[in-house]
Nucleic acid binder design. Structure first.
Lengths: 205, 205
DNA sequence: ATATGTAGTGAGTACTCACTCATTTTGCTT
DNA sequence: AAGCAAAATGAGTGAGTACTCACTACATAT
């Protein structure tokens, strides 16, 4: 029974994440959040002035904290290894915070303040490591001279499509893959292209 | 003044799409939908039993109609041309229905009935054309023998990331690109890979 | 003219929700 | 143990909501 002691405020935030992400911000009631947190409804308002304040508090340093830029030790590693480890690291983070991620993404549409915070603190930061790496590889001439912002987002999109599919929509109903295998194939497509190596003309020009 | 005559029901649906997509299902009030549609609140309930019925009606044949499978005339065309035209076609559809797309995607999380409908009728169908084409190219040995379901979703994700970014999050605040150029680069990355290859004859400057 | 059916209205109703506050409980200090 | 402030409580409040219904307006048939 090593129960970690959590501040009442955090306790309420955790409950809010769960309820918000299940019902949406407008669909959730403070009563339910209170029940989920195991406190009285009134207690919530000792820590947050309004229901919306709870939501806004969730995009702050709280999550950013766990997004501490992973320093990638790229020295002597292959591109495959580096990209794979970046992707796995990011996926791990998302999985650990999946409820929060879903919530922030969804509600960002309706709350401009949240949107700013979310994009700058979470999305931009998450994309940063990758963009930097790709930029370097382009500079050194090992990657094509494409726009690094496009290139990084393209890879994020490739991986993101599967996360979105699985976590936002249908779970494993239609497709489910071994994650390692999935990442491997994606990185492979990304790095070397889908066109067969021994390609002969016909298509090219 | 060639005003197209629209049924009252459609008029309400159109208004609902606008209000729902701006405020979310729970954030929208029937009063506002009525005002937006230019009818009395009571009128809404002559056509829909409940507010939720309005929402559910939106994922039906209405949108699917506009997703009529575009037959791609691939004969003699390069992969670049085919993929580009598929992507452009899909982007066009999404743009025309951007409010509805945002709405369905967002609310699919909270309404299982909607989710089934949306995924099967919209997402699956939209992905179908591409998957089929890729599958063929793999069979003919022109594409690597990757899993076509992975490959198709990877491309969708690449493109989707930009749509999501632009339409769901921040508009043009952080990045904006010429769409044709963007698609060109994405298709290029996808088809030939980001890694510089000697046989490509230098990078395309 | 009169009757009948249909579409439309908007004030009213029953109910829900975010938030308040008078009261009780907790935990600390002496 | 007594005193006290901070923390916690939950019934209460008023603003607002989805939905109803008694009614009006108008078209068509008799």
């Amino acid at each position: 029974m090593d129960r970690v002691i959590i501040s009442r405020e955090q306790q309420i935030k955790d409950a809010a994440i769960r309820v918000f992400s299940k019902k949406g911000f407008n669909g959730a009631t403070t009563k339910e959040i209170a029940r989920e947190a195991g406190v009285a409804e009134g207690t919530i308002f000792r820590y947050f002035r309004t229901k919306k304040d709870i939501l806004l508090s969730l995009a702050g340093p709280y999550i950013v904290e766990s997004l501490k830029t992973t320093l990638i030790n790229a020295a002597g590693k292959s591109d495959e290894a580096v990209l794979t480890s970046i992707i796995k690291n990011r996926l791990e983070l998302i999985k650990e915070n999946i409820d929060l991620a879903r919530l922030l993404f969804t509600e960002a549409q309706f709350h401009p303040e949240l949107r700013e915070n979310f994009t700058e603190n979470v999305v931009m930061r998450a994309a940063g490591v990758l963009e930097k790496y790709i930029d370097e590889r382009i500079s050194s001439g090992d990657f094509k001279a494409v726009d690094p912002r496009i290139a990084s987002r393209a890879l994020i999109g490739m991986v993101g499509a599967f996360v979105l599919w699985k976590e936002f929509l249908l779970g494993d109903k239609y497709i489910s893959f071994d994650e390692d295998e999935l990442i491997k194939q994606l990185v492979d497509i990304y790095l070397t292209g889908i066109r067969a190596e021994e390609w002969e003309g016909g298509m090219g020009s």
